[in-house]
Nucleic acid binder design. Structure first.
Lengths: 218, 218
DNA sequence: AATAACTTGCACAGCGGTGTGCAAGTTATT
DNA sequence: AATAACTTGCACACCGCTGTGCAAGTTATT
């Protein structure tokens, strides 16, 4: 007997949590391409009925919030270890890691545009954004990153450029390696490096050749 | 007597067309910040009742289509004369002209993301996009623009970067001159120039100092 | 095998939005 | 001043979506 209290209900069933994550997965991809995806569509993609959603999430907003938070957590985890002495390398690495979390980036980007979800996304993304900002600031101070644009603005521009690359790379069917390279190139270019400099930096930095993350699970 | 045919209705009233363009203006700004803006909201912004819209546009889709088409026309007009021998100058000029048509860019960008309006926008934007693509292609051929990224992809990335700049510049309250400079810098950076090179090019090219367009009306 | 957890399907109310008809009012034009 | 153009306000039907209640079914757990 594993129950704890007197009126104790039996432990929640294992498949229930599986369904919950299936819903989150479905919501992530669905909302990633259409922030107004209906619960009907999401449930279908998860192989469940619309009615079943309400067994896991009280309201639609709860579902999207949960999806956003999980995405932000994964994103933070994927980019946790990118700090380097050379801000340019750190930036490239950060970009590369995004490529391995495209799904998450897509939802967040999609929901960050419009409506009330904006606030939720903003809060959830705060850590990642501050990491980027500090890289940019450090680079500007040490002269490795441009300083002709205010750091705050520049980091937002890099963020948007990176998102654009991810969309472009997935829709154009780039390979994993090409995707990595492209997102690094654009991040570096936006940061002020010339195309030549960006390519040389990547070439000269072994760590950037195949920037596989250490498979951090969550 | 100005009437033409027998059962001729009297000529349409002058204020009717004023209201029509007021509606298009309102739709442009409203849809620019929320692609799902209600007709109620748009009508209110135009100083009319929702019911009055149907005197000018049969359906909501008609209104957005008209708004898109007018925006694309203005955009094309604003960027019609940017071709130059130096592809980098042409690109910078193109970016600068966008700054003077922010409203139009905003609607188009906002509607280009999601839903059925995507097709309409795509068609309407075709000329501007092909202008950009040919600049990029020419620049890559003559060695003034990067060739490490396929021209088609690169031009889409520049487009997205430019949009990001416009949003950033307006939301951060940049001055007109700062806005011009910022959008030129980012376009050039994405095209492969270093921050230094971009600034020097702008410095060395008088035409880019105060790129006021010749007030093309439409 | 018994039980509770979970899913399903249906029905229903509610909400916000669109599109339409019509009568009454206002306003530019002749 | 007469007339047609235009706007308004209200009514209504319709649509897709959300959220809820409930009864019946299925499935993991003990």
């Amino acid at each position: 007997m594993t129950s704890t209290a007197v009126g104790a209900r039996r432990a929640p069933r294992r498949d229930a949590e599986e369904n919950r994550t299936a819903l989150l997965d479905a919501a992530t991809t669905a909302l990633g391409s259409d922030p107004d995806a209906s619960l009907e569509a999401i449930a279908a993609a998860a192989g469940l009925s619309r009615r079943a959603i309400y067994g896991h999430f009280a309201t639609r907003d709860d579902l999207v919030a949960a999806s956003v938070e999980r995405g932000a957590l994964r994103l933070a985890a994927a980019t946790a270890d990118v700090d380097r002495d050379d801000a340019r390398v750190a930036l490239a690495l950060l970009g590369a890691r995004l490529w391995d979390a495209v799904e998450q980036v897509r939802v967040l980007a999609s929901l960050a545009v419009r409506g009330p979800s904006l606030a939720v996304v903003g809060a959830a993304l705060a850590p990642v954004r501050s990491r980027l900002l500090s890289i940019v600031t450090a680079g500007a101070a040490s002269g490795t990153i441009r300083d002709d644009i205010p750091a705050a603005s520049l980091s937002r521009l890099i963020e948007q450029a990176a998102i654009a690359v991810l969309v472009e790379a997935t829709e154009s069917g780039f390979s994993r390696d090409d995707g990595h390279r492209l997102v690094m190139l654009i991040a570096l270019s936006t940061a002020g490096l010339s195309a030549r400099e960006a390519n040389e930096l990547i070439e000269a930095t072994p760590e950037l050749h195949h920037p596989l993350p250490e498979d951090a699970a969550l």
